[in-house]
Amino acid sequence: MAGEDNSEQALVVGGQGGIGCAVATQLAQDARFDAVWTVSRKTSTSKGVQCLRPLHTDHSEESIKTLSEQVLEESPRLTRVVIALGTLHGEGYGPEKSLEALQRTSMEVVYRVNCVLPLLWLSALAPGLRKNPDCRVAVLSARVGSIGDNGLGGWYSYRSAKAALNMGLKCASIELARRAKGVKLMAFHPGTVDTALSEPFQRGVPEGKLFTPEFVAERLSGLLDEHPADGALSYLDWAGESIPW
């Protein structure tokens, strides 16, 4: 499935979420890429776009390993990876406002989706990335995962999971700087995006600060183009500004 020598390939994990779908569409419209893999829990179609390659996963370790091996084998020039996984609320859980609201089951769900799964995908892709001379990897983080920027408290599980994700990515960036010098890692804060994740919390968003997924996808693409491999993890917001750890 690999294209011509100068063609590139991309992978979007979480390709049917609001941001992930917009990123996949943006990449599919970029002439540099002849294949854009999209991984989702839902059965998806390519929607008539020839270069989109939909894959289904249950996010089990076996599925993650198998699909990563398939993508790496068929895409020797994988130059963009976007891991767009995240959850803030769902059936029976939401952001906690107090210590008394903490529950083990909801914490485990939030940690798994926001921290464990992105790192498992990165782990499974690592063997192939080590052979790649140029691959920019972005993982959806959040400003609320910043310990230094936390002046409000609350949202215990989501904040903690994103902070743990950031630490995992930091460790990975140090390792990849030694073993995969062509890889650039980025923890990306998209801002407040008009998706199902933020819908219950949009009332207090200042005018002009509720972004469309398409705007965020464009900003992320530009940031990935601007940041070549440098052996470091960048923690950036949608405007390209660094966020304190």
Rank of each mutant, 00 (worst) to 15 (best):
G3F: 01
G3D: 02
D5T: 13
D5M: 08
N6D: 08
N6F: 04
Q9P: 11
L11H: 00
G14M: 14
G15S: 15
Q16R: 06
G17V: 15
G17W: 03
G17P: 13
C21S: 09
A22W: 02
A22T: 12
V23P: 04
A31Y: 15
A31I: 04
A31M: 15
A35L: 00
W37T: 15
V39P: 07
V39Y: 01
K42I: 10
K42W: 00
S44K: 14
S46T: 06
Q50D: 10
C51H: 13
L52M: 13
R53M: 15
P54V: 08
P54M: 06
P54D: 09
T57W: 03
E61H: 08
E62I: 09
I64A: 03
L67T: 13
L67Q: 13
Q70K: 02
L72S: 03
L72W: 04
S75Y: 00
S75R: 10
R77Y: 01
R77A: 11
R77W: 02
L78W: 00
T79D: 01
V81F: 06
L85A: 03
L85Q: 01
G92I: 08
P95E: 00
S98A: 05
S98D: 07
A101M: 06
L102Y: 14
L102P: 07
L102S: 05
T105E: 15
E108P: 02
E108Y: 01
V109R: 11
V109E: 06
V110P: 02
L120H: 11
L122D: 05
S123Q: 11
S123H: 09
A124E: 09
L125P: 08
A126W: 03
L129P: 00
R130Y: 00
R130A: 08
K131T: 07
N132G: 14
P133H: 04
D134A: 15
R136E: 11
A138K: 10
S141K: 06
N150D: 03
G153D: 01
A161N: 04
K162G: 10
L165Q: 05
N166Q: 11
K170Y: 12
K170I: 11
C171R: 03
C171M: 13
A172H: 06
K181Y: 07
K184P: 00
L185P: 03
A187L: 14
V205E: 12
P206W: 09
K209C: 10
L210D: 07
L210H: 13
E214W: 09
L220A: 12
D225L: 08
E226D: 15
A229T: 02
D230A: 11
L236Q: 15
W238P: 12
W245P: 03
